[in-house]
Design a protein around this nucleic acid. Structure first.
Lengths: 235, 235
DNA sequence: GAACATAAAATTTTCGAAAATCTTTGATTT
DNA sequence: AAATCAAAGATTTTCGAAAATTTTATGTTC
């Protein structure tokens, strides 16, 4: 009897990693804020060792910075980094999309269709005032974009895309409601058009639509972040 | 006054990280070999905590794998990964090169000229039987390629390139001598031509030359790795 | 009062023992 | 012989105290 799939026993270090990652992404800490071990120990309920492992890993992924003998800080946010991240994301993801359109099989099409469907359903029931449902929407959004490029055949591209998503999602979280509430924008129509072009194997069109999608997102995020900086400076 | 170097003090964890990284890159361990803490503790002369931090970081960078409650292993090597890594490297670095040619200033040109010069000098005095001088040559080689793309203006691209280099250098190390000894190849001429095209701001030519440079490297590495696999299977 | 040294406090980092978990061994049963 | 189970051994993982380092506070000198 197949051993009941050995329990996904998450070590304490992984628990701490997941928790901190989630909190940083969702904006629970101020950028550049020092992350004191004693404080985190209480917050996460784990000792020093697993905590430092989690922070080391987050540092390697770019979510926190570390300086020898001076501990860890939440990684800074900046307009330059936001622009850079979104541009690089577009560059890499469009390539992965081209390859997926060329190589994708029935399963790939199935993943696109079903993730788009799930995104639509979550979008219907989504409540802009509930952080829980917004996080779920964000996850479905990511799933759709992952599905789009899931036939690229390149593990390396996938990893890069994953890390770039991580770098950009921090800018989105604190203002996702603003974003989806933007009257000039219907995200489901944009996503539907990208999906259609991809399934029709129209690579140039799909790439253009995806580029436009990210350009618009970048513009809105840059605007939102500029406003935040202004508020911080003036108010 | 224990140790007079207070400023550039490397923590023990960083020492362990540097050492292990170097040993993995230079092929001191067999791929997929388990990395036992007790053994590493003796080898590195540090306790469990900094060791685990180093391994966690190496895992995030892809040089080792980790499984909960089962410790760490040296990351595997494979033909697929080698191909993928070299292709992705070419894709990303050619873009960074295009941008650098467009944006590069006098300092950028200076970095190319001087790193090419340093590479040539190291190449002259390099002894294929001395691992020390081979490692130095590898470093000058990396410096040149870093200089080439150092005016891309994208921190993200630079990071990605750095990580991809890390992923590919493992395949090169055990057979660097084979590579540079290949009679059909004069690396200094290839590098000189790339440098010339870049400095002449001829982006299409520079990109073609860089692509050819990496394609040839990839071919030789794939051949070398196939031979190694055959030897492991038969002999 | 500014510059400098020094002590005290706060914080990070490391160590090694203890706990938790995996792996092997070997006896027992089917 | 194959399967099962529990104890013994090996290894990873965690904890908390101790060491090392940075930061802050205090006092002294010019």
């Amino acid at each position: 009897m197949a051993k009941a799939l050995s329990k996904s026993t998450k070590s304490r270090g992984e628990q701490a990693y997941s928790l901190l990652r989630h909190e940083i992404i969702s904006g629970a800490f101020v950028p550049e804020q020092p992350l004191r071990l004693a404080q985190l120990q209480e917050r996460c309920g784990v000792g020093f060792s697993p905590l430092r492992e989690a922070l080391t890993r987050l540092a390697a992924e770019g979510l926190v910075t570390s300086e020898a003998m001076r501990g860890f800080r939440v990684a800074p946010l900046s307009l330059d980094d936001l622009r850079d991240t979104m541009e690089t994301r577009t560059f890499v993801e469009t390539e992965a999309l081209r390859r997926s359109i060329k190589r994708g099989d029935d399963d790939w099409e199935g993943r696109i269709v079903s993730s788009l469907h799930a995104l639509g359903r979550q979008n219907e029931r989504s409540n802009p005032n509930d952080p829980e449902s917004l996080a779920a929407l964000e996850d479905r959004h990511r799933d759709f974009h992952v599905a789009l490029i899931s036939a690229s055949g390149s593990r390396r591209l996938e990893q890069i895309i994953d890390n770039l998503y991580l770098g950009s999602v921090r800018y989105r979280m604190p203002s996702l409601s603003n974003l989806s509430l933007n009257p000039a924008r219907d995200l489901m129509i944009e996503h539907g058009a990208i999906s259609d072009a991809a399934l029709a194997r129209n690579a140039p069109l799909a790439v253009d639509l995806l580029t436009a999608h990210y350009s618009l997102t970048a513009e809105l995020l840059i605007q939102a972040h500029s406003d935040r900086l202004d508020r911080a400076a003036n108010g």
